[in-house]
Write a protein that binds this DNA or RNA. Structure first.
Length: 555
DNA sequence: TGGGCTTGCGCC
DNA sequence: AAAGGGCGCAAGCCCA
């Protein structure tokens, strides 16, 4: 059963119109609801799929009221997938004009945004009302039709379910928060940066003093690339940028302290006391996850930089008393995804024993594990030069199917074609290839070729990164389902629950006695995700699982 | 003063 | 060692 939720009017957020459908899409009736939380709680016993325009708009209030939902269908996220997918390209939805459902999250149809702003999200002026108040029931029907008419309804349907489950998880993780000990964080900062002072923390100031002395630039602002470049030049050091890896090549007594300064300054500005004060409250870090925020299907975050949490401060993530953190990450996920989706039996076999890179070495394709890693990264990112570029042909010889898959994706992108992940997420349209001899100058033709190659590198990576993101969504959805099944009706934060997600890594916060069972569930979920995406292909997705008191202990 | 751009670097 | 994919954020810079 599906239950579609819609606001009755823009000005009345309390009253909700609910429309019920059976599994075949037959409407069963409508009902007005004034206490949504109570309604949802009661209906959950029948395990409906809740259909709404935007999980981030509906679910936080339900969670705050103590209500969880098991399944949902996020119309906005699903619309974007169906709009672009090659599997639904002929659907009415994909062929229709862009409308309010194509707008960014937050520009929801019936929020209080003034008409002028809403109009920014449509290309058509004649239907502003339709844009501001699109009908979720009509949209839902259109999406169901698009899936049903798809050449691969199973795949695209699985993707929509996984994407929607991700939206639920994102809201729940924000609600629960990542356990964060401000006192530990402060200790880490003080140990590395020194005591907080009005100007710079003491250790940061000390190392800056050394840099200024050795460059004989007492006024140097090290945070200004231009100023730093000037000072380096005055000291006889010729560099074109102030990037760390560039500076590392230089021989000069100022370089070591300068690199040290950069490292400390980065910690201070990105995750220092100011960050702590801004993002951590009541012992929890609550980042704003944005499911589907990256074109490849990866999540993004908005504010707090949760996906860039430096290893230096992860020790501040501490389980509550009597609780543990179960930290799991998928080893070498992207190359394994590539092997599986290409059906490259040799590469799948190379990963079967545990370390994929060691397996590649054992096959004789390259000499060392480092070479295997660099060559694989080059294959997935499109390296053209350096060691990575040189090793690629050897990889192509040993694993022709895997390499052909990424090469084909790159060529398609260069021609301006779209590429598609395992479950059916397609890349945005590129620029159609132009005939270079039509361009007026060789310089212009050269720029056009480079643009095409760059887009090819993007599409090459898209199929791998995007399919890995699908695997991760399925993995996480399975973890959530198992944890929920095992919770015995306990509230979200009273039982094991997901608290963090980082592309190929999850953290579950759980009572200590449950940790071993949680680890087993996470492991089982990885196998299930592999089956969901790749069926009987015997690809392994091994995990590194750690049961720890703080995140810093994991790896 | 504030918006938009660039630079550099953290994560995968 | 430093070429190749995807991001977000802070600070400096530039200009209105």
């Amino acid at each position: 059963m599906f239950i579609v939720l819609a606001n009755v009017s823009p000005g009345d957020s309390a009253r909700v119109l609910t429309t019920r459908f059976d599994d075949e899409g037959t409407p069963l009736g409508v009902e007005y609801v004034d206490d949504l939380a109570q309604f949802v709680r009661a209906e959950e016993r029948q395990r409906p799929r809740w259909v709404w325009d935007d999980t981030a708009r509906w679910y936080p209030a339900l969670l705050a009221a103590g209500v969880r939902v098991e399944r949902c269908f996020d119309l906005r996220l699903c619309h974007v997938i169906l709009r672009n997918s090659a599997l639904t390209a002929r659907s009415t939805l994909a062929r229709g004009e862009r409308n309010g459902w194509d707008g960014p999250a937050g520009a929801t149809p019936d929020d209080s945004r003034p008409p002028a702003a809403a109009a920014l999200f449509t290309l058509e002026d004649e239907q502003p009302d339709a844009v501001r108040q699109p009908d979720p029931v009509a949209e839902f029907s259109m999406q169901q039709a698009a899936v049903a008419a798809s050449a691969e309804p199973g795949r695209i349907g699985r993707l929509l379910a996984a994407e929607s489950a991700g939206a639920l998880i994102a809201a729940e993780m924000r609600f629960a928060g990542l356990p964060w000990r401000a006192d530990r964080h402060d200790q880490i900062l003080t140990a590395i940066l020194g005591e907080q002072t009005a100007a710079r923390p003491t250790k940061l100031q000390d190392v800056l003093d050394v840099v200024r002395a050795r460059l004989e630039s007492p006024e140097l602002n090290p945070d200004s690339p231009a100023d730093l470049l000037r000072a380096l030049g005055n000291a006889g050091l010729t560099v074109t940028s102030t990037r760390s890896w560039e500076l590392r090549k230089l021989k000069h007594p100022a370089i070591a302290p300068l690199l040290e300064y950069k490292k400390l300054a980065r910690l201070l500005s990105a995750n220092g006391w100011h960050w702590l004060q801004t993002w951590v409250t009541d012992g929890r870090f609550r980042p704003d996850y944005v499911p589907g925020g990256v074109v490849t299907g990866r999540w993004a975050t908005s504010g707090g930089g949760a996906l860039q949490l430096p290893k230096q401060i992860r020790a501040a993530v501490v389980a509550d008393d009597g609780w543990k953190l179960v930290v799991a990450d998928a080893s070498q996920l992207e190359p394994r995804i590539l092997a599986a989706m290409a059906g490259d039996r040799a590469m799948v076999a190379a990963g079967a024993a545990g370390d994929l890179y060691a397996g590649i070495v054992a096959s004789g394709a390259v000499q060392t594990r480092d070479q295997a890693k660099v060559a694989m990264l080059g294959a997935m990112y499109g390296a053209t030069s350096g060691e990575s570029g040189r090793l690629m042909p050897r990889l192509a010889k040993a694993y022709p199917r895997a390499i052909a898959l990424v090469e084909d994706a790159a060529r398609a992108g260069e021609r301006g074609e779209i590429v598609t992940t395992r479950l059916g997420r397609s890349s945005p349209p590129g620029t159609p290839a132009r005939r270079y001899d039509e361009l007026v100058s060789e310089a212009e033709a050269s720029r056009a070729r480079e643009r095409a190659r760059a887009w090819g590198r993007f599409t090459r990576n898209f199929v791998v990164q995007g399919t890995a993101a699908e695997w991760a969504l399925c993995w996480m959805a399975s973890i959530r389902r198992q944890l929920n099944d095992d919770a015995g009706g306990a509230w979200l934060t009273d039982a094991p629950h997901l608290v963090f997600f980082l592309h190929d890594e999850v953290v579950v916060h759980c009572p200590a006695p449950a940790a071993a069972a949680v680890a087993a569930a996470i492991t089982e979920a990885a196998a299930e995700a592999g089956r969901l995406l790749f069926g009987t292909i015997p690809a392994q997705f091994p995990l590194t699982v750690a049961i720890v008191d703080n995140y810093g202990e994991a790896k």
